[in-house]
Design a protein around this nucleic acid. Structure first.
Lengths: 141, 141
DNA sequence: GGTTCCATTGAGACCCAGTATCGTTCAGCG
DNA sequence: CGCTGAACGATACTGGGTCTCAATGGAACC
């Protein structure tokens, strides 16, 4: 919201409504999720607007796009600084992690390959503590 | 090809043709690229077959799926062991890189977040040496 | 508050990647 | 050679995402 204003974008009803929906989400969500929720809550927000708002939020860095192993595209609300995510493949919860240690790796790769590395993406998939515990309890099946 | 045979899959005309097309590609390519090339070369390979073959090749590990920053899905021919890619954002050339150093990073992340990390994906984008040189020559614009 | 202007919107047509269906073909094997 | 099921091509279908266009409504200025 403040981010919108600061960047010279208009603060409109649909954007306000969507940013609220996003803020109260736990883990990641898809564009389709938002469309469905907006529709079921009668917010009067169109499909196109959801996609436009997501693009915008991504530009502002308050939301990040993930590519799940399944090939789906999902979004996570997050801080607008460079970082990565650990994603729980059972419940979808995500955790932000800082870059620590990766700069070193990218640096060494740049040296080894001769490439000039401009950007990178790191995504980690696994089980969050709660889900790991649940799995252990119900048997590893 | 040998990979197909070894895993008990049939070696058919379309698979042979596609694996040839893929082998002679430099960088990454999309499914649509293959479909178009197969069509223009009159190879008589249907769209569905291209997707099926790509799935298969991916299972065999001789091709890997990338998610480009643009959101497109692309494929790269590569070795069937765990590794990552550096992708030139100008010419699409890719280089394989080993995991060295990343295990350490994922380990420290697991410790910090409590997550049990099962898999990860790292993609690096930048300029290959040739493109970097070309850019420098033509001015940084 | 009223007016104006243009960014933003909703509805729906559209496009494209990927999947499912189904009848046909052909690789591999005896 | 003849069988059998895996693989095939054509094509219909689905679903994510974009485009178009007329209508709306923020924000800025009076």
């Amino acid at each position: 919201m403040a981010a919108l204003d600061g960047a010279g974008y208009r603060i409109t009803g649909p954007r306000r409504a969507l940013s609220r929906l996003i803020a109260e989400r736990r883990g990641h969500f898809t564009a389709a999720d938002l469309v469905a929720e907006a529709r079921s809550k009668q917010l009067g927000v169109g499909r196109a607007t959801v996609f436009r708002a997501l693009d915008l939020f991504e530009d502002l860095g308050v939301v990040e796009r993930l590519d799940l192993p399944s090939g789906e595209h999902a979004y996570v609300p997050c801080e607008p600084i460079h970082h990565h995510h650990v994603i729980c493949s059972r419940c979808g919860r995500t955790e932000e992690i800082d870059d620590r240690g990766i700069d070193e790796v990218t640096g060494s790769i740049a040296r080894r390959t001769g490439y000039r590395i401009d950007s990178h993406r790191l995504e980690l998939f696994g089980l969050c503590p709660a889900c790991a515990a649940a799995m252990a309890e119900n048997g590893p099946a």
